[in-house]
Design a binder for these strands. Structure first.
Lengths: 259, 259
DNA sequence: AATCTTGTTACTATAATAGTAGTAACATTA
DNA sequence: TAATGTTACTACTATTATAGTAACAAGATT
């Protein structure tokens, strides 16, 4: 064993890699599929998968042996969600601001090149049907833009290498030059603006959640408004202080939690 | 290596055991705590935990080295939740029944001796503040009673060995004899009744979700009503057909999915 | 100031895994 | 129908990852 990684379990990592192959887009996978995708040889894959099946994290259908998530995985999902202290810490802050100002608030956490939906409160005037839990389209959302604006240069180019830029509404900015300019402006401004670029009829402003010690973005918050009732100018005048205050408060909590 | 469990990874199991130590009640744990609780020696625990930390599933605070769930675990929680095909399969059925009859519906899955909340739709007349995701109090809920009624004898005694029976409302049945009688009646009746035994002001009826091939309970559904507006008699007369129909439909789906 | 407890590292025997190879069952194709 | 390809699963052993003991420094507790 190499001396450096003596305190790192390769077997465990392989197991985790297998688990991350299962999600909404891929609820079912075959053994060979798993083996190929993870690069683990078939025997080891079989051993690992078998372990998951025996412990209820995966289950296999009797006929075609397809593998799917088991109840233990679902339970673990629950536990991870509610046992995540960052979530528990942010919730009351957002609830407070929501009740105080009666505005829709969304929050998300950076995980590599995507955002993970953290916690959301919505006003009834907002038609927000089925927002995703995991977002890749950082370029098209207020929460995403402000994260990109605070990415380091390598992080940013890393994102755009893997990103698939496409028009989600007629307002979506898809030209790379325009996107880069927008990101630069967001950085200078300190908060981001989304003018119906993600969902028709919704305009938003977003601010970064920072680790104040490491000076790095760890997430973002946004305030969302129906475009029919609000203008961007009005929002900027009346809500940016609330937004930045909220983002600052969350940043402090999150920093103290050592994210 | 023992020949029988050649295709089972002990290392992976240990890793999973570590992960399940983190939940809402225990968002933070120390290394030695993990080592003691799992029975894994300190060095191995260190190796496993280190792997989780390096991959972002756990994070450790700079000062006291306490371990907490990381963003990767939160993301995985999301994925497990939404990638669980049973959840996706049940959702539209419950939604349909909800919209058709305008009644509050709850569903849960058996995981050992507890129930995992699966999917819920609520009418505005129901004050259901903060129901738990994981339920141990099977004896006090409609969803729980009907599961107990379909447990095998060893499963049932297994539950009561670990269960802590306590009064949650003034109606909660806490006497063991009465509980056993109630379970027997539930079995004969085919559905369970909860008369404000879990939450004051809420009465429910519950039916089992069965694996029709294996003839075993895998979960349950309940219809919940405000006690102020409904009587148990009225519910039994008007809603048991809907309840049993719904449970049957879900059972079929779930069986076909091979839970 | 002394003791206990914490996380972390070094070392090596032992036990677990990787990888090759091969089987039977089933699917797909000719 | 026969031939070929694919699937999950198993047997075997060389390799290597892990378990376990021991020891250490840094904090915490006494």
């Amino acid at each position: 064993m190499a001396n450096k990684d003596q305190y790192f379990s390769k077997t465990l990592e392989k197991g985790l890699n297998i688990l991350t192959l299962f999600n909404r887009e891929h609820p079912s996978r075959s053994l060979t599929e798993i083996s190929k995708l993870t690069g683990i040889n078939k025997t080891s894959t079989y051993r690992l998968v078998n372990t998951f099946v025996q412990r209820g994290y995966l289950r296999k259908s009797a006929d075609n042996k397809a593998l799917r998530l088991g109840t233990k995985a679902f339970a673990l999902g629950h536990e991870f969600f509610h046992g995540f202290d960052i979530y528990q810490g942010i919730k009351p802050i957002i609830d407070k601001t929501f009740l105080e100002h009666k505005i829709s608030i969304d929050s998300a956490l950076v995980d590599g090149n995507r955002l993970i939906s953290l916690y959301r409160r919505e006003m009834p005037n907002l038609v927000h049907y089925h927002l995703p839990m995991l977002m890749d389209e950082l370029y098209a959302r207020a929460m995403g833009k402000v994260v990109l604006a605070h990415f380091t240069q390598p992080e940013l180019s890393g994102y755009f290498e893997s990103a698939r830029i496409e028009a989600l509404t007629e307002n979506t900015i898809t030209d790379m030059e325009a996107i880069r300019k927008e990101i630069a402006e967001t950085r200078n401004r300190g908060y981001s603006i989304n003018n119906e670029e993600y969902i028709q009829g919704i305009i938003s402003v977003g601010a970064p959640i920072m680790n104040l010690q490491k000076k790095s973005v760890v997430g973002s918050v946004s305030l969302d408004f129906p475009a029919t009732e609000y203008s961007i100018e009005y929002i900027q005048q009346n809500f940016t202080n609330i937004l930045l205050g909220l983002a600052g408060e969350i940043s402090e909590i999150v920093t103290s939690m050592g994210i």
